[in-house]
């Protein structure tokens, strides 16, 4: 590639993730703004540690740890994703037009992960925020148990568009950030350390742009979602383990 290609197409068929990532890195380095990867099937670590602000379209089913350690780019998955997309991601955006597996957005520190469908267990586990960095995970469908476990910051929204949210033990060990779930959440589904509060108007104002962006990405009508009933779940304390220990 001698000329600067703004749009680069990569055939991912049968390509191992290392050469695939090498091609992506090279395209980004050469100034590509849009990268299209077709025939992806099971390749892990797509966009691992990648910097820049390119937009990467992934067609097929990428393997686990999509966008792990990523810092900047946008990855749009036209299909399902496996476990832990957005793992320890720093900045950028992941948009998944299907479902995703367990531990979505694990330890995510910044950027956004939008999943149109359902996610598995331990979604948003140990997300954390810092100064201007605030990670956001929005799930269109349902989430499974241990949602927001150990959460230390950031915003996690579950819209439940495909029926009721199945998660139990929500927010176990949560000590920062907030979980917002459309509709009511049975108090029995909350884990110790998590507390249910109503969504105040200022909270709604805060999350509205996120919901609009999500709706925009997936072609949904934003307003009914913005105006729906929500339950907000926050930490009972920023120090969940204080009180468990005594000194020798």
């Amino acid at each position: 590639m001698s000329t600067v290609a703004k749009r680069v197409v990569i055939d991912g068929k049968g390509v191992h993730y290392t050469p695939l990532n090498q091609q992506i890195r090279k395209a980004v380095k050469d100034g590509a703004e849009e990268i299209v990867i077709s025939n992806v099937l099971g390749q892990r670590f797509i966009g691992d540690g990648l910097r820049g602000n390119a937009t990467i379209h992934v067609y097929g089913v990428p393997g686990g740890d999509l966008a792990i350690f990523m810092s900047g780019p946008t990855i749009i998955v036209h299909g399902n994703a496996e476990h832990a997309p957005g793992n320890t991601m720093d900045a950028g955006k992941v948009v998944i037009h299907g479902n995703a597996g367990d531990a979505v957005a694990h330890s995510m520190r910044g950027g956004k992960v939008f999943v149109r469908g359902d996610i598995g267990y331990r979604g948003g586990i140990h997300m954390k925020q810092y100064e201007a960095q605030c990670p956001i995970l929005v799930v269109g469908g349902s989430a499974q148990t241990f949602l927001g476990e150990y959460m230390a910051g950031g915003l996690l929204i579950v819209l439940g568009l495909n029926g009721p949210v199945r998660a139990r033990d929500i927010g176990s060990g949560i000590h920062g950030g907030e979980i917002v779930i459309r509709g009511d959440v049975d108090a029995a589904c909350l884990a110790t350390g998590a507390r249910k509060v109503p969504l105040a108007d200022e909270d709604r104002r805060r999350i509205a742009p996120v919901i609009r962006e999500f709706a925009g990405d997936f072609g949904l009508d934003p307003e009914p979602l913005v105006n729906a009933e929500y339950t907000r779940i926050i930490p009972a304390s920023a120090r969940p383990f204080v009180g468990k220990y005594t000194w020798e």
């Binding site: 520190r109 140990h126 954390k128 925020q129 810092y130 960095q133 150990y150 230390a152 910051g153 060990g173 000590h175 920062g176 920023a238 120090r239 969940p240 383990f241 204080v242």
Partner: peptide
């Protein structure tokens, strides 16, 4: 550590 001041680092 990239966490808010005063919060437990768990």
């Amino acid at each position: 550590r990239m966490i808010p001041p005063g919060s437990d680092a768990i």
